[in-house]
Simulated assay, not measured.
Amino acid sequence: MSSTELPETRTAAAPSASRPARAVRVADGEELRSVSLPGLTLTVRARPGVEPGLPPALYVHGLGGSSQNWSALMPLLADLVDGEAVDLPGFGDSAPPDDGNYSVTGHARAVIRLLDSTGRGPVHLFGNSLGGAVATRVAAARPDLVRTLTLVSPALPELRAQRTAWPTVLLAVPGVASVFARLTKDWTAEQRVRGVLSLCYGDPGRVTDEGLRHAVEEMERRLELPYFWDVMARSSRGIVDAYTLGGQHGLWRQAERVLAPTLLVYGGRDQLVSYRMARKAAATFRGSRLLTLPEAGHVAMMEYPETVAQAARGLIADHGGS
């Protein structure tokens, strides 16, 4: 699965027919660029290390998220790693892939192609939710690209999904996304954001007024994208399909093959990935470390970035931090 493709790098700012006109937010200290590969264009949000020569890190977001999901965590590790967060195909500011492949394997292949083309591996790899499943596949398939692995509420198969996770499953059913889009066409961006926060945060009250405003602006931007609902539906279907795969392609079987030192982070109030899966994950990823946060929800790196950063620092320091 290696690649010899060379990326074309440019500033990701100017709108075009294939890119939204509304600008994507870039926090102080971040840099945004676009990497073009055959059939694939990915936006990368960089948080350069505080000094040259720091080992690279790559952050992979979850379903419906973007590279902005890591903006709170990345600066807390900038003295240890040179960080980059990718917008998966069709999410954030990345265009849909030419092949329309939104499976977990398709997303993993995009991450591998990015790392191969830029030559940044091996990296300290981080993944949340869908990004956790993607990162698990990458680590299993290409151990040469992964130095350490940090998974925050990874989307790994559960025998009994929580009821609050059923909407993700329903979204994967053909036609449901378009019906939902019609039924909710009068919802404001703020109503949608508050709904997402109540589902993803253990305590939505932790979100500041400024954070809410930025989230609403990003939601408004995404709703203008003609492919928004299609990407959500196809990626949801990709998660469901990955859950049903057996044999060597099953996510738990691949988790057993991961060689990289692993940190697992689970939230006690997670409504999408069950807290009870923490024990199974810790037993599956060999020699892994487990951080449980009873008050956290599905996005601990956004809810408790300092605590997650402290645990990640320990992992990185012990396994090739410099």
Rank of each mutant, 00 (worst) to 15 (best):
V26K: 10
R276W: 08
S16C: 08
K280C: 00
L225P: 03
A78P: 10
G119C: 11
P143S: 09
E210C: 01
E303S: 11
R120V: 02
P55A: 12
P7Q: 05
L114F: 11
N101S: 12
A17L: 10
S178K: 14
L291S: 07
T307S: 13
A133L: 12
V138N: 09
S3M: 06
L114I: 07
L293E: 06
A309F: 13
L63T: 07
R276L: 01
R182K: 10
P305F: 11
F126V: 03
A165P: 03
V176N: 09
V81F: 01
L76D: 10
V196H: 07
G127L: 09
R194I: 00
V138D: 06
S2F: 10
T244L: 15
V86K: 10
E210W: 10
R109P: 00
L199K: 04
H249C: 00
P55N: 06
L197M: 11
E210T: 12
A135M: 01
V216N: 08
R163F: 13
L42F: 14
G127A: 14
A189T: 00
M302L: 04
S3G: 08
F228Y: 15
G29K: 06
A140S: 10
H61N: 06
D144H: 02
G131R: 02
R45D: 07
L40A: 14
S288W: 11
T150R: 12
E31I: 08
T307D: 15
S235F: 05
D116K: 02
E306F: 09
P122R: 14
I316W: 05
Y59R: 00
L156F: 12
